[in-house]
Deep mutational scan, measured.
Amino acid sequence: GLEHMADEEKLPPGWEKRMERSSGRVYYFNHITNASQWERPSG
């Protein structure tokens, strides 16, 4: 619901949600550090 939507907005600075086109899996990418990970970043 709306709570989940708001929660997605609160990623740490630099992080954004991305989708891997080949598999459709969602991952997280940090455009500041060029880091990427499957787990939702905390902090």
Score class of each variant (00 low, 15 high):
17 K>A: 08
20 E>H: 15
33 T>A: 04
39 E>M: 06
3 E>I: 12
26 V>N: 04
32 I>T: 08
5 M>L: 12
12 P>K: 01
38 W>F: 09
5 M>S: 12
2 L>K: 10
32 I>H: 09
3 E>Q: 13
4 H>P: 12
27 Y>C: 06
22 S>I: 14
11 L>T: 02
17 K>S: 06
14 G>P: 09
29 F>T: 02
7 D>H: 10
31 H>M: 10
11 L>W: 02
2 L>T: 11
14 G>K: 01
13 P>Q: 09
23 S>E: 04
32 I>M: 09
30 N>H: 04
23 S>Q: 04
27 Y>D: 00
23 S>P: 01
43 G>T: 12
35 A>I: 14
14 G>V: 02
26 V>G: 02
12 P>Y: 02
13 P>E: 09
37 Q>L: 04
24 G>P: 01
28 Y>K: 00
41 P>I: 02
33 T>F: 05
10 K>Y: 11
3 E>L: 07
3 E>C: 15
41 P>F: 01
9 E>H: 08
42 S>R: 09
22 S>F: 11
31 H>G: 05
22 S>P: 09
5 M>V: 12
34 N>M: 12
27 Y>A: 01
35 A>S: 10
18 R>G: 02
29 F>L: 03
40 R>G: 02
19 M>Y: 15
10 K>Q: 14
11 L>Q: 03
42 S>T: 14
20 E>V: 10
6 A>V: 13
28 Y>G: 00
17 K>H: 04
17 K>R: 13
30 N>V: 01
17 K>Q: 09
18 R>P: 00
31 H>S: 12
3 E>K: 09
6 A>P: 13
25 R>I: 05
19 M>P: 02
22 S>G: 14
37 Q>I: 05
4 H>A: 13
6 A>G: 11
28 Y>A: 00
1 G>Y: 11
13 P>V: 08
36 S>D: 02
35 A>M: 14
28 Y>L: 00
29 F>D: 00
12 P>L: 04
18 R>S: 02
41 P>M: 01
12 P>I: 02
9 E>G: 08
41 P>C: 03
36 S>Q: 10
20 E>T: 09
16 E>K: 04
21 R>Y: 15
13 P>G: 06
22 S>A: 12
35 A>E: 13
16 E>L: 06
21 R>K: 14
34 N>I: 03
22 S>V: 14
5 M>A: 14
3 E>Y: 02
31 H>P: 07
26 V>W: 14
43 G>D: 11
20 E>N: 07
39 E>H: 10
28 Y>M: 00
26 V>P: 06
8 E>L: 07
27 Y>P: 00
12 P>A: 04
14 G>W: 06
12 P>N: 01
11 L>P: 15
7 D>M: 10
6 A>K: 10
11 L>R: 01
29 F>P: 00
13 P>A: 10
33 T>M: 05
35 A>W: 10
17 K>V: 10
24 G>Y: 03
26 V>E: 07
39 E>V: 06
31 H>Q: 09
35 A>H: 13
19 M>H: 11
3 E>P: 12
25 R>E: 04
2 L>Q: 12
30 N>Q: 02
27 Y>K: 02
36 S>L: 11
7 D>Y: 07
37 Q>P: 00
36 S>N: 05
27 Y>T: 01
25 R>H: 04
23 S>W: 03
9 E>T: 08
6 A>N: 10
29 F>A: 01
27 Y>G: 00
5 M>W: 11
37 Q>A: 04
30 N>F: 03
4 H>S: 11
23 S>M: 04
38 W>N: 05
31 H>Y: 14
39 E>Q: 10
7 D>R: 07
41 P>L: 01
36 S>G: 05
29 F>Q: 02
25 R>L: 07
43 G>R: 10
30 N>I: 01
20 E>M: 11
16 E>M: 06
5 M>T: 11
7 D>K: 08
9 E>S: 08
1 G>E: 11
17 K>P: 05
29 F>V: 05
42 S>A: 09
9 E>Q: 09
9 E>V: 07
29 F>G: 00
38 W>Y: 13
34 N>Q: 14
21 R>P: 15
39 E>S: 06
40 R>T: 06
25 R>P: 01
31 H>N: 13
16 E>Y: 04
43 G>C: 15
7 D>S: 10
20 E>P: 02
13 P>S: 07
2 L>M: 11
18 R>D: 01
25 R>V: 05
41 P>R: 00
32 I>V: 09
36 S>R: 15
16 E>G: 04
12 P>H: 02
25 R>S: 03
36 S>P: 02
6 A>C: 15
21 R>S: 15
9 E>L: 08
4 H>E: 13
19 M>L: 14
31 H>I: 15
41 P>N: 01
42 S>P: 08
35 A>V: 15
17 K>L: 09
1 G>L: 12
8 E>M: 07
38 W>V: 05
12 P>S: 03
28 Y>Q: 00
40 R>Y: 08
16 E>F: 05
32 I>D: 08
15 W>N: 00
18 R>M: 08
2 L>D: 12
41 P>K: 01
32 I>Q: 08
40 R>F: 10
27 Y>F: 07
10 K>N: 12
31 H>E: 06
23 S>A: 03
35 A>T: 14
16 E>A: 05
37 Q>H: 03
41 P>G: 01
8 E>V: 09
14 G>E: 05
19 M>K: 09
13 P>D: 09
26 V>I: 13
18 R>W: 04
15 W>A: 00
34 N>H: 12
40 R>V: 07
33 T>W: 05
32 I>K: 08
38 W>S: 05
24 G>D: 04
33 T>Y: 06
21 R>V: 15
35 A>K: 14
1 G>V: 12
13 P>R: 08
4 H>F: 12
8 E>H: 09
14 G>T: 02
35 A>L: 13
3 E>D: 10
9 E>C: 15
7 D>E: 11
42 S>M: 10
23 S>G: 05
8 E>I: 10
27 Y>N: 00
22 S>W: 09
1 G>D: 13
1 G>I: 12
